[in-house]
Design a protein around this nucleic acid. Structure first.
Length: 689
RNA sequence: GGGCCGGUAGCUCAGUCGGUUAGAGCAGGGGACUCAUAAUCCCUUGGUCGCGGGUUCAAGUCCUGCCCGGCCUACCA
């Protein structure tokens, strides 16, 4: 049974755990942390109950995005990923996420393993070769992934859409279908180029993948169903695993000028990082990756399900490595029920969080919300405040802070006093708590633990140590009460220690014995000294949360050096209507542009192009204007809006009446007429300078 | 359109194999205490278990139809 103390050799499981490899192209944010905190808790739990467990991770360093960014910043990819790795490791450490090894996919171990995997795939006859036509940016000298191409949607004609699908009409297409495509890197018009690509014929592993995914042990049932419905019902498509130069990655040995696609070498990085750890610790890689005695657990987000449940098992199977015992898949983080938003300041970087808040808060909050399902996890900041303040500070830490002062004088009793069965009951509850941890149902574990905490404080209340402390006759009784209080506290902390390692350390320091084993929850600590109590955990200050949100907003406001024209504006309009001859400022000021409000708008039945507008320049100044915008606007949508008009234009007699001005608009005519409007705050009558 | 998950107190959620009067925490109300970080303790208000039908001696729980929300995905399960 899990809750029992595992004897070091007999029942001990050997477990290898990975979290997804963060991409070395950006900072860690609180969304990432859901996964790393979850995984870290599980690993710490496994270690606590006495299993042999290692936590392996690495930076994912290859691919076009890294190459482009390094180029833009004028440095080598190696310099970029080295710097990012330092930041990542600093951030993880800041949240008490403790890896046994944190490697890099750009390592000699990974290169060697990629060769091994590749040779196995070749030998198994799973590699096919085909020509692929792909858009190429002649200026940036690189092939373009879908997200680096923008253009007009071939289906609905919406402009500025990415190369794979359209935001507006949800159509999916190939980037070569885009109308007027542009590279977002250089703005150049990409050209179609054909190149050789290498494919893994996954369909040949269909039968294996079907049975592996559907056996009910390796995946959550929702995931197994999803795969069955989505992919396994049809022949599996070949997987394109190569990219032609230039590409930042490993060159494919038997296809010079071609590189393994980043998603080929990234998961191999799990093994490579393990290998690096083995070398440093005198371990054999085969004991961890080619042994039935070792469990392999991957923790990932639902966005990369496909790679980890189809490609990866297929690769492992072919290359003769252990298959994952389980792939644990979690949902995304939302904040206040919405996607993280840069403008709302809810896209919080790990670094920014740590400037304002204690990592313990987030670890506990996530734990209290994490189940074993794929549901998205919502971070509600008010809830975080109330959970941390009432559960951790009010209930748990309070147990120590209200008894430790007395116990510092008396020490702990040498036999455990009668506590009405509290300690024993809580010790028994350890089984259920451990099961919840094992199942990754941390929310349940936290619930069970807090139930215990709820029973502990009334004991103190009834025993009234503050009364006992006043009388010299009741010193033994006082010591007994504190012995109970501190042992109940310690027991809770043992249970919480996978989530709250800092608190566990502080508890160990207070009682003079470090928290190292689950078994410490099963028997009380007796007859020892108690050190002076030191403040353990501050309450969450709402102002700190506000400050964090504010800083996140600041960070994400204007990016002055925007990456090479992300808007991808074409020169078509300018070419169609070249710039006019130079004019002087005197020329310009002759034209009196004014803000005006359209107070009335109506059709002119006989007119083909005109609408009749009544403009207000404020007060009771009105102008009657015939505007040639009928093809693009309905009168109803115009009433009330502000426009910019030429107010001193000589009135002109038209067929339908006198026009006393002109409304400014851009565009070539037809559907393409865009009225100019001032930003909000402008008032009718204001002059445009 | 399809798939998956969910809908239980103001909020966040438990609720085992169908089995007494549906629970907890937080918030609200009242009181107590002072050892503790205004922490804690006691009492208390609050529910048509999304809606309808069915099975059953018995339904929050099982079946079915519908409504709502989230995620995924698109003529494909």
């Amino acid at each position: 049974m899990i809750a029992q103390t595992p004897t070091q050799n007999s029942n001990q499981r050997r477990i290898l755990v990975t979290a997804a490899l963060p991409y070395a192209n950006g900072p860690i944010h609180i969304g990432h942390l859901v996964e790393y905190i979850q995984t870290d808790i599980w690993v710490r739990f496994q270690k606590l109950v006495g299993n042999r467990c290692i936590f392996i991770c690495a930076d994912d360093t290859h691919g076009t995005a890294i190459m482009i960014r390094a180029r833009k910043e004028g440095r080598s990819e190696e310099a970029l990923i080295a710097e990012t790795q330092v930041h990542h490791q600093r951030d993880f450490a800041g949240f008490d996420i403790q890896f046994d090894n944190y490697g890099s996919t750009n390592s000699p171990e990974n290169l060697e393993l990629c060769h091994q995997f590749w040779a196995s795939l070749r030998a198994a006859g799973l590699v096919a070769e085909r020509d692929v036509s792909q858009l190429f940016d002649p200026e940036a000298n690189t092939f373009l992934a879908d997200r680096f191409v923008k253009g007009t949607c071939p289906t609905c004609k919406a402009i500025n859409q990415y190369g794979d699908n359209c935001d507006k009409c949800n159509a999916t297409y190939s980037p070569t279908d885009l109308i007027d495509p542009k590279s977002t890197l250089s703005g150049a018009t990409p050209e179609l180029r054909s190149s050789k690509h290498l494919f893994v014929e996954l369909e040949k592993l269909h039968e294996f993948l079907e049975s592996w995914t559907q056996c009910g042990k390796h995946l959550q049932t929702e995931v197994a169903n999803y795969l069955k419905g989505h992919f396994l019902g049809d022949p599996l498509r070949d997987w394109d695993v190569s990219r032609p130069a230039p590409y930042f990655g490993f060159e494919i040995p038997d296809a010079p000028g071609n590189y393994w696609y980043v998603w080929f070498d990234a998961p191999i990085g799990y093994i490579a990082s393990t290998w690096a750890w083995c070398k440093a610790n005198g371990e054999k890689l085969d004991d961890w990756w080619r042994s039935d005695a070792t469990e392999v657990h991957h923790f990932i987000g639902k966005d990369i399900t496909y790679f980890h449940t189809l490609f990866w098992p297929g690769m492992l199977k072919t290359a003769g490595f252990s298959l994952p015992t389980k792939v644990h898949i979690h949902g995304f983080l939302t904040v206040g029920g919405e996607k993280m938003s840069k403008s709302k300041g809810t896209f919080v970087k790990a670094e920014t969080y740590l400037k304002h808040l204690n990592p313990t808060y987030l670890r506990y909050y996530f734990a209290s919300k994490l189940g074993s399902k794929l549901d998205d996890l919502d971070l509600n900041l008010d809830e975080l405040i109330s959970k941390v303040n009432s559960d951790l500070v009010g209930k748990v830490v309070n147990l120590a802070s209200r008894t430790a002062k007395f116990a510092n004088k008396t020490g702990l009793s040498s036999t455990y006093p009668d506590d009405g069965g509290l300690f024993e009951a809580a010790a028994k509850a350890g089984t259920a708590i451990a099961e919840a941890y094992e199942e990754c149902d941390f929310a349940k574990a936290m619930r069970l633990i807090m139930e215990l905490a709820d029973r502990a404080n009334p004991y103190i209340e009834n025993a009234q140590p503050w009364v006992l402390a006043k009388s010299p006759d009741s010193q033994q009784a006082l010591r007994d009460v504190c012995t109970v209080g501190l042992n109940l506290f310690r027991q809770l902390i043992v249970y919480l220690s996978p989530v709250l390692p800092k608190l566990a350390e502080q508890c160990g320091a207070l009682l003079g014995e470090p928290i190292t084993s689950w078994s410490q929850s099963q028997s009380p600590l007796l007859g020892t000294q108690v050190n002076p109590f030191e403040h353990m955990l501050a309450r969450v200050n709402p102002e700190d949360i506000q400050a964090m949100i504010e800083e996140s907003k600041q960070e994400n406001t204007p990016e002055p050096t925007a990456p090479a024209d992300p808007w991808n504006d074409t020169a078509d309009a300018l070419n169609a209507e070249p710039l006019a001859d130079e004019c002087t400022i005197e020329d310009f000021v002759k034209v009196d542009l004014r803000v005006a409000r359209i107070v009335a708008a109506e059709q002119v039945p006989e007119a083909r192009k005109l609408l009749r507008l009544t403009l207000s320049l404020g007060g009771d100044v009105r102008k009657n204007v015939f505007a040639g915008i009928k093809s693009a606007y309905e009168p109803e949508q115009l009433i009330g809006r502000l426009v910019v008009c030429v107010a001193n234009l000589k009135p002109r007699q038209m067929k339908f009446g006198l026009s006393e001005g002109m409304v400014t608009a851009a565009g070539s005519g037809g559907d393409e007429i865009y009225l100019l409007s001032p930003d909000s705050g402008a008032k009718p009558g204001m002059r445009v300078h």
